[in-house]
Amino acid sequence: MDEQNINKKEQYDQQKGVELTVLRRKKMRRRITFWLVVLVVLIGSVWGLAKVASRMPENSPVGAMDKVSGDDWVKGNPAATNILIEYGDFQCPACRAYFPLVEQLVKEKGDRLQFIYRHFPLPQHKNAKPAAYASEAAGVQGKFWEMYQLIYEGQNNWKDVRDAKDIFVDYAKTLGLNLDDFKKDLGSDVIKSKVESQAKGGTQAGLNSTPTFIFNGKRIQPQNYEEFSNLIP
């Protein structure tokens, strides 16, 4: 091989080398873009999901649901302008968990607040309706809130029982109610239709979960006592 040829070959190799580096760089850039896109999509979607998941239906107006009716059970100060309405299901564990928070709220701010409890028994909770009837039957004898308390406090004792009625009759006995009247009222159509109409009102307003709290006409979802307490300064 003469010198000229060697020079040509060197030149060729050099050019090839440059092309290779350019190609390699291009490839590298493509890989970096690929993983960057992956990273952005992953982080973006998780962030978006976190937003969606925490989209509490807060502060959405609830239409006619916040009208206080003469049928409603009121705790606190019936003249107070702050109105907290709970649509509850006695068998729902979340309602049970909120029960002491509401009790504390009424105890501390009861002079500036009226708390109203309405029934929204969910279909999957078989004992929720009998519990609602029991509270209303006790209400006939003026002990709605006392029964309400016993039912929530004893939730674990009756929620999985086949026939919870006996347990509610026991509660009535504890409260010193007239048992014959109580048992009669448990099956009364007036009470059944009251529970039914409250639940229907909730469904019509688009309720699908319990407990649903409505404070002064707006749906709220406090996660702890502090958030409840902040409602009423």
Binding site: L49, D89, A94, P123, Q223
Partner: peptide, 25 residues
Amino acid sequence: LDAVFLTIEHYTNNIPPCFALTGCE
């Protein structure tokens, strides 16, 4: 995404509410 959604739900709701007509609760 599905699993992340469930995980977020698990951790954000201190007290997960009861939902009507779904078995998720």
